[in-house]
């Protein structure tokens, strides 16, 4: 951190861009094909602009402090010198136009570079909601599709087509390490393609202001090897784990179905079929709960259920009063939904 602050003060953006740091949600830590193209464009434009800025500064400093001849009245101008300046200003203006043209061309090629997925690629529908993400894997065979939330798995080395739809207000899908952002707009469908070459986890976050908990609307994109991905997808397609032999889990499941929980959440394989909250079928297989708020653990789940409004004020999950026993059973059940 210290080093970064030092360079920031020196005003050397280029160094910063080239100097790496460890961040799984950064346009500078590009890991996906799109993000890498974009990073090259960013470095190019920032570098050229930095040079321009320095040239302008040198010109200005020289203009301010250069040695001058004797005093002259304000209107006593020297025509040849004025003409020469006129030429210099014209040339600089011309150069400005040329540079802009160059940037436009570079932008054009970058856009062309950014991969576009075909219809037959893996297609995922992403729904943006206040304040979480619904994730629906579409498949030509409807029975092979499945629903999840807040965590997207993609196979490495393959274009993945995302259909983006805002289900309440406008949100924006942004995983800086993989691609630029794209908005989710009610009444419209946008598309974006992401592609990761290497396995890894990349964090994303809503980038369009969407209300009270805009700050806590994170998600995770996990790139797996094709084999891992296939395994994961198989597991996700399956209904929820049924650990009926564990008494505590069975009790928790009972609480879940009795209380209002089932009205909002779905757990496939049970009678919980609500759709206004995230699908919880494989909740415990995800790395985070509550849209990137807390790492998944039984303790975190218990804390969340016990008091969602303190952890994420204003979110749409109400506080459902539970006795300590019910809460313990509930957290056991939720933690069992691998």
């Amino acid at each position: 951190m210290k080093r970064r602050i030092g360079t920031a003060r020196l005003g050397l953006p280029l160094l910063l861009l080239l100097g790496g740091c460890d961040n799984w949600q950064s346009a500078l830590e590009a890991r996906g094909a799109s993000a890498i193209s974009l990073k090259h464009l960013i470095i190019l434009i920032v570098a050229v602009c930095s040079v321009i800025w320095m040239l302008v500064m040198i010109a200005m400093i020289h203009a301010l402090w250069r040695r001058r001849t004797a005093w002259r009245a304000p209107l006593d101008l020297v025509p040849p010198r004025e003409r020469r300046l006129g030429w210099i200003v014209s040339i600089c203006t011309g150069l400005t136009a040329v540079i802009i043209l160059g940037f436009t061309v570079a932008s054009f090629f970058t856009t062309r570079d950014i991969s576009v997925a075909g219809q037959d690629d893996l297609t995922i529908r992403i729904g943006g909601l206040q304040w979480w993400w619904s994730v629906e894997y579409l498949d030509p065979d409807p029975s092979a599709g499945f629903v999840s939330a807040n965590e997207i798995h993609i196979p490495t080395g393959r274009n993945v087509r995302l259909l983006l739809q805002g289900d309440d207000v406008i949100h924006s899908f942004w995983v800086p390490s993989l691609a630029g952002k794209q908005d989710l707009i009610p009444g419209r469908t946008n598309e974006i393609t992401i592609r990761a070459e290497r396995p890894g986890a990349y964090r994303g976050q809503c980038a369009e202001f969407c209300g009270l908990q805009h700050a806590h609307m994170g998600f995770l994109v996990t790139a797996d090897t094709p084999e891992d991905f296939a395994r994961w997808a198989r597991a996700q397609r399956a209904p929820a784990a049924n650990s009926a032999d564990d008494e505590e889990i069975a009790a928790g499941r009972d609480v879940f179905m009795r209380k209002p929980c089932a009205g909002c959440h779905s757990i496939r394989g049970t009678q919980a079929t609500g759709t206004s909250g995230p699908d919880l079928t494989h909740l415990a297989s995800r790395a985070f709960i509550a849209a990137g708020l807390l790492p998944t653990s039984r303790g975190a789940l218990a804390a969340w259920v016990a008091d969602p409004q303190t952890l994420k004020p204003g979110n749409n999950m109400p506080l459902v009063p539970l006795t300590p026993d019910e809460l313990r059973a509930m957290s056991a059940y939720l933690a069992s939904l691998k």
């Binding site: 993000a35 974009l38 960013i42 950014i114 980038a207 202001f209």
Partner: peptide
């Protein structure tokens, strides 16, 4: 620049 902007817009 449209592509540049997709990384910095709303940040």
């Amino acid at each position: 620049s449209v592509p540049f902007d997709t990384q910095v817009h709303d940040t």
